[in-house]
Every structure is written in C-alpha cells, then in structure tokens.
Simulated scan of single mutants.
Amino acid sequence: MPILGYHYGPDWNQELYQATVDRILPDRNDLPSGLIAHYAAPGEGGGWQVVEVWESAQHHDRFIRERVMPAAQELGAPPFETKVTEVYNSLVAK
C-alpha cells in the first residue's frame, strides 16, 4: 500500500536539506527503490518540510534508517519529525 511521509525539521533550512540530499542522492538518476515522489519546501512558520510518496512503509523506513539518518548524523543535523500515513487517493497532472 502506498504511503505518504511527512517530515518537518523546525531547525532545518534549505542549505542543510540540500547538503543532506547531496549525500544521500549523489546521482539523481538513481533514485531509491520504492520512491514515487519527493517534494521539499520551507515550512510556513520556518524550518523545512519534505513530503514523499513511497510504494510501501518498508521502502520509506529502510531509506530513512539506512541513508537519511546516517547522513544527518554526519552533518550534525538537528532532529526532525516524521509522520506516515496510507495514501487514500492521488491525482497527478501530466
């Protein structure tokens, strides 16, 4: 079942996000298994937010555990919140 992952770091910014992405995805043509979509933007009240859609919670959790957390720790990044829920519906414009 596809899931939507929402990540918010109140102490994150675009530079820290980009440094993390550069470490975990050095080749944008080699995306992680199970990733359907990824969007990132400043938070409404500051910080940084990421919204992703994954084929399954297992794909999402493995990527966070094996790639994101080690990179964030290497960069000394502050913690971020994660919420995961099943996708009910999706509409994608062409």
Rank of each mutant, 00 (worst) to 15 (best):
M1R: 09
I3D: 00
L4A: 04
L4H: 04
G5S: 09
G5M: 06
Y6N: 06
H7E: 05
H7S: 09
Y8I: 00
G9K: 04
D11K: 14
W12S: 06
Q14R: 15
Q14G: 13
Q14W: 03
L16E: 06
Y17H: 13
Q18E: 11
Q18S: 15
Q18V: 03
Q18C: 08
Q18R: 15
V21R: 09
D22K: 15
D22P: 10
I24Q: 03
I24F: 04
P26D: 02
P26Y: 03
P26G: 06
P26I: 00
P26C: 06
P26W: 03
R28I: 00
R28Q: 05
N29R: 14
N29Q: 12
D30F: 05
D30E: 08
P32E: 02
P32L: 01
P32I: 00
S33R: 15
S33V: 03
S33H: 11
G34M: 04
G34T: 04
G34D: 06
G34R: 07
G34S: 11
L35S: 13
I36S: 07
A37T: 07
A40F: 02
A40L: 06
A40V: 01
A40E: 05
A41V: 02
P42V: 00
G43A: 10
G43Q: 09
E44N: 10
G45T: 06
G46R: 10
G46K: 10
G47M: 08
W48R: 11
W48T: 02
Q49D: 01
Q49I: 01
V50S: 04
V50C: 05
W54Q: 10
E55C: 13
E55S: 15
S56Q: 08
A57N: 11
Q58M: 12
H59R: 14
H60P: 03
H60D: 05
H60Q: 14
D61M: 11
R62T: 06
F63Y: 15
I64L: 13
R65G: 05
R65V: 01
R65I: 01
R65Q: 11
R67P: 04
M69G: 04
M69L: 14
P70H: 10
P70R: 13
P70D: 08
A71F: 10
A72Q: 08
E74Y: 06
L75C: 11
L75N: 14
G76H: 14
G76M: 10
A77R: 13
A77P: 09
A77I: 02
A77M: 14
P78C: 09
P78L: 08
P78D: 12
P79S: 12
F80P: 02
F80C: 09
E81F: 14
E81T: 12
E81A: 15
T82V: 08
T82M: 14
T82P: 01
K83L: 13
K83W: 12
V84Q: 12
V84A: 12
T85E: 10
T85H: 10
V87C: 07
V87F: 02
V87L: 12
L91I: 01
L91Y: 04
L91G: 11
V92H: 06
A93G: 11
A93L: 09
